[in-house]
């Protein structure tokens, strides 16, 4: 027992010494773990798994997906922030983990800028404002007018989520008050809007798209400044409320101090994955716009997002311990 252990330690030491020299040239020489900070089955998980499969081909190594859900994505992000900065543990970050949570949480479990090395901004995903067809409004303006006359409520996937804040931004820009009804995730929120228990919802376009296409939900506007290619008939909310813009996004991050060579290799693999026509087709079905940025662009994006959301968060008075 002792013998083998010592031998293994020696072997291991020799091995890692050898590696240290070759690391720069040979990244990656083993499987990369992609941490998804949400439970399996959600939209971030879906994007992550599709991308992971293609990145593995580009890297020539397995990309293992690990779901570390909890605390609105903070647990998974925190785990990657504290992981060894060797490029073998990376995070599928979102607008929640890298803009909203750091602004909302009173105790900051990690710093979205200092603790991470940006790799690549993969996709932007529009959100949508939709109503139950029984609500007598067909445009954003009619909804605003109605909200000024009678009390309304809107459903979201939870307190402090991008969708909740999209709703709060809408309220403050339109100058109306609509009661927020949070749910545990998008699914139950959708159920209650489909059943007209709550008339209005802010949801991710991908999860609502089936219901919009079938007419069970009436989409009033998308939250991006441009219309979504998958729903060319749905106007942008910004047409009625100039300057209104929110969207969810997914981006890859590595722990801060990850060697630049590893970042480059990962970013190149991510770009290769996003350039794959099959991935592009999947993302289009998903209503997601492909960005596939450089690490520098992602770094700038995170800063811009934090600046954009800070006043909304303050105004909506959302804070979590």
């Amino acid at each position: 027992m002792t013998m083998t252990l010592t031998r293994r330690i020696l072997l291991g030491a020799a091995f890692s010494l050898g590696l240290a020299g070759a690391a720069a040239a040979a990244f990656p020489d083993r499987a990369v773990t992609l941490v998804i900070p949400f439970a399996a089955g959600g939209s971030t998980d879906v994007v992550g798994r599709i991308v992971a499969e293609r990145m593995a081909q580009a890297l020539g190594q397995q990309v293992v997906v690990q779901n570390v859900g909890g605390a609105g994505g903070s647990l998974g992000a925190q785990q990657v922030a504290q992981a060894e900065p060797d490029g073998y543990t990376i995070l599928m970050g979102t607008v929640a983990t890298h803009a909203l949570n750091p602004l909302i949480l009173k105790q900051k479990p990690y710093d979205p800028v200092a603790d991470f090395a940006p790799v690549s901004l993969l996709v932007l995903v529009p959100n949508v404002l939709a109503v139950n067809p029984e609500l007598p409004v067909t445009t954003v303006q009619e909804l605003i007018d109605l909200a000024k006359k009678e009390p309304l409520a809107y459903a979201s996937s939870g307190n402090g989520t991008p969708l909740h804040l999209s709703g709060e931004l809408f309220k403050s820009m339109a100058g109306v008050d609509i009661t927020h009804i949070p749910y545990k995730g998008s699914g139950p929120a959708l159920t209650d809007v489909l059943g007209n228990q709550v008339p209005i919802i802010f949801d991710n376009l991908p999860s609502a798209s089936g219901h919009i296409a079938s007419g069970k939900l009436r989409a009033l506007g998308v939250t991006t400044t441009e219309r979504a290619p998958s729903f060319p008939d749905v106007p942008a909310i910004a047409d009625t409320l100039p300057g209104y813009e929110t969207y969810s996004w997914n981006a890859l991050f590595a722990p801060a101090a990850t060697p630049p060579e590893a970042i480059e290799a990962l970013a190149a693999a991510a770009r290769a994955a996003m350039a794959d026509p099959a991935v592009a087709a999947r993302m289009a079905e998903f209503s997601a716009t492909i960005v596939a940025s450089t690490p520098e662009e992602l770094g700038a994006h995170v800063k811009a997002e934090m600046e954009k959301w800070a006043p909304v968060v303050t105004k909506a008075n959302v804070s979590l311990d």
Binding site: A39, G41, D45, V46, R49, I50, S209, A213, E285
Partner: peptide, 19 residues
């Protein structure tokens, strides 16, 4: 069932009344 939905979306099926 949430996991099943994820599986459907990964397969390119949008779950909903149209299925």
């Amino acid at each position: 069932m949430a996991l099943m939905i994820g599986a459907m979306i990964i397969q390119g099926i949008v779950p909903g009344p149209n299925v």
